[in-house]
Design a protein around this nucleic acid. Structure first.
Length: 145
DNA sequence: GCCAACGTTGGC
DNA sequence: GCCAACGTTGGC
């Protein structure tokens, strides 16, 4: 299983919107960047990801799961763009801010810091565990600590 | 709202 | 295939 991070501007698509999309989840539309798209093509159903609020908030607020593999982005006819479906899994008991991430030397190589413009990013397992721990979650079981 | 970083486009 | 111009992202 792989781990990822998804950025969204909360005034466009917030964590609350994602939760309202329910168990089925919904397409993670609007990605128009080849690198980000290629990461989505690598995703498998069941992969976990952080839901990050960019622009406003600047924090990881929840955990999502890939609920469908990459398929045509329904918001465009352009066949170059496809995306996965995501569903909300749980809240971060305590949201983890970009500031917190930058202040943690274990996370200095995290793509969130090094490739900050990339809107869909891979997360290494140790980074996953660490960010979960900072947010009050066990990264393996996704239960509160 | 500014601007740095960086991806994309298009002329040559 | 280079590179300048341009557009977008996202932190500050």
């Amino acid at each position: 299983m792989a781990y990822w991070l998804f950025k969204s501007e909360p005034f466009k698509w917030s964590w609350d919107d994602q939760k309202e999309a329910g168990e089925e989840g919904t397409q993670w539309t609007g990605i128009r960047n080849y690198q980000a798209r290629n990461f989505m093509r690598d995703m498998k159903v069941g992969d976990k990801g952080f839901f990050y609020h960019s622009n406003k908030g600047l924090e990881v607020v929840g955990i999502v799961e890939v609920s469908a593999e990459s398929a045509q982005d329904e918001t465009t006819d352009d066949e170059r763009w496809d995306c996965v479906d995501l569903r909300a899994v749980c809240d971060m008991p305590k949201s983890v801010t970009l500031k917190d991430v930058k202040a943690n030397e274990k996370l200095e190589d995290m793509a969130l810091v090094t490739s900050f413009r990339l809107s869909v990013q891979p997360v290494k397992e140790d980074e996953w565990i660490e960010v979960c721990r900072m947010g009050g979650l066990n990264g393996k079981t996704l239960k509160p600590l």
